[in-house]
């Protein structure tokens, strides 16, 4: 029973990881490509880590939860990387399929407000 669950989680995780990179390879402009790794890869690795936690917890050596830490870390950091990458792309005014909004070159002025 636990084997089926594990197999499902591992396959789903690997599939989502693959789809993330596949989107990175396939989509046409940077802003669209950004979506693929941020979402798909994060969930893919998350479910792989869940499978790993389940695997080691059922091997009889007690609960194994430090995978949760990596998952948590990835879920917190992936959006931050995505946000900064898209901000950098807007700053450089990369070509986009969507209509670029005006006055986006102000990455500098925006970052200044980070400091009190």
């Amino acid at each position: 029973m636990i084997d089926y669950l594990l197999s499902f989680l591992i396959l789903a995780g690997a599939l989502f990881t693959f789809i993330g990179s596949f989107g990175l390879w396939r989509l046409q402009d940077f802003y669209s490509r950004l979506h693929a790794p941020t979402k798909a890869t994060t969930l893919g690795v998350g479910s792989l880590l869940l499978a790993s936690a389940l695997f080691f917890s059922t091997r009889g050596e007690g609960l194994s939860l430090h995978e949760v830490l990596v998952t948590l870390f990835l879920f917190i950091t992936a959006p931050v990387s995505a946000h900064l990458l898209s901000k950098a792309a807007l700053h450089l005014r990369l070509r986009s399929l969507a209509e670029l909004p005006e006055d986006t070159a102000g990455g500098e002025a925006d970052s200044k407000t980070d400091q009190p």
Partner: peptide
């Protein structure tokens, strides 16, 4: 901003300097 990056097919791109609007792709 972080939630928007993770969930409904969007990535938050920029916060306007006066913090009135969030630019989302």
């Amino acid at each position: 901003a972080n939630t928007l990056c993770l969930t409904p097919g969007t990535v938050s791109s920029q916060l306007t300097p006066q913090r009135t609007h969030l630019l989302v792709h």
